[in-house]
Nucleic acid binder design. Structure first.
Lengths: 142, 142
DNA sequence: CAAGTTGTTTAGAATAATTCTAATTAGACA
DNA sequence: TGTCTAATTAGAATTATTCTAAACAACTTG
């Protein structure tokens, strides 16, 4: 009967279902992190950012768990990993086809819808190999 | 009169001139590294790779110097830095407009000439900001 | 619902890439 | 040549990330 016993809200249910559907055990930590990631619209997030956010929300997880969760989510297609800057990588909750603006000054990323960029004349992959994806990054200086 | 006294070859002269033109003091180490980088066609290279190559050629440089030189060369427009993989960055001797194939299996990069990829309908940068460059990376799985 | 199995979490150590520090060395130019 | 200043260096420090091995918790079965 304590306040600690949460009744499952809509967001909790959908997040839980997403984890299960992906074949990931919905543990406390994964649920909490997924909720932070997927609660509202799409977002870009580094491991460190998510870790700090979790701390802010009194979610007690280790940094190792954050890395594990991000990689597990990525492996199951719930996230997409982007590396623009060799100093750290970002995880994008938008896993569909799309591209990015990268603001060099702030290190921020912004999505560009797939249909905003049209690539004509993509060269064939050498040796008929399979293209796993095409990333377009538009770097903004100022 | 010793063998140690090298007479400047064509490549040495051009490399020396390139450094001077870029406003970089042509020190022994920078000359040796630039020679390795620019001797023949374009190439992609990590700091570690260049360091090992230097060792193989009995060029006695520290890893810190390799990093310094690569960053100095990049700052002066002699190289372009690319980060595809958050685990390490590559430096490309081709500083003109062009794009890349990235072979996920081997970690190798291959240039794609600018005219092989045509991007139509680039979105305007938010707030009229200046685009510093557009990178297209085609990832090859197999 | 108790026990067992397996997948997860964790703190902390370990690693890898890169940068920093402070002392030494060496181009440039008078 | 001597002086000035930038470049080099070894090694320590830092940062992002991964590993390790033990503790734990989710699912399953009895």
């Amino acid at each position: 009967m304590s306040m600690r016993q949460k009744k499952p809200s809509a967001i909790n249910v959908t997040v839980l279902e997403r984890l299960r559907a992906a074949g990931l055990r919905p543990t406390r930590q994964r649920l909490a992190l997924a909720k932070l990631l997927f609660a509202r619209g799409h977002r870009h997030c580094s491991a460190e950012q998510l870790f700090n956010e979790a701390k802010g929300h009194r979610v007690d997880v280790s940094l190792a768990t954050v890395y594990n969760a991000l990689h597990d989510f990525t492996a199951k297609g719930l996230l997409r990993e982007i590396s623009i800057d060799s100093s750290s990588s970002y995880f994008d909750t938008n896993t569909g086809n799309h591209h990015h603006f990268y603001f060099e000054r702030s290190g921020q990323l912004e999505d560009i819808a797939d249909d905003q960029v049209s690539i004509a004349a993509l060269p064939a992959a050498p040796g008929g190999a399979e293209i796993s994806r095409v990333d377009v990054i538009i770097r903004i200086r100022a």
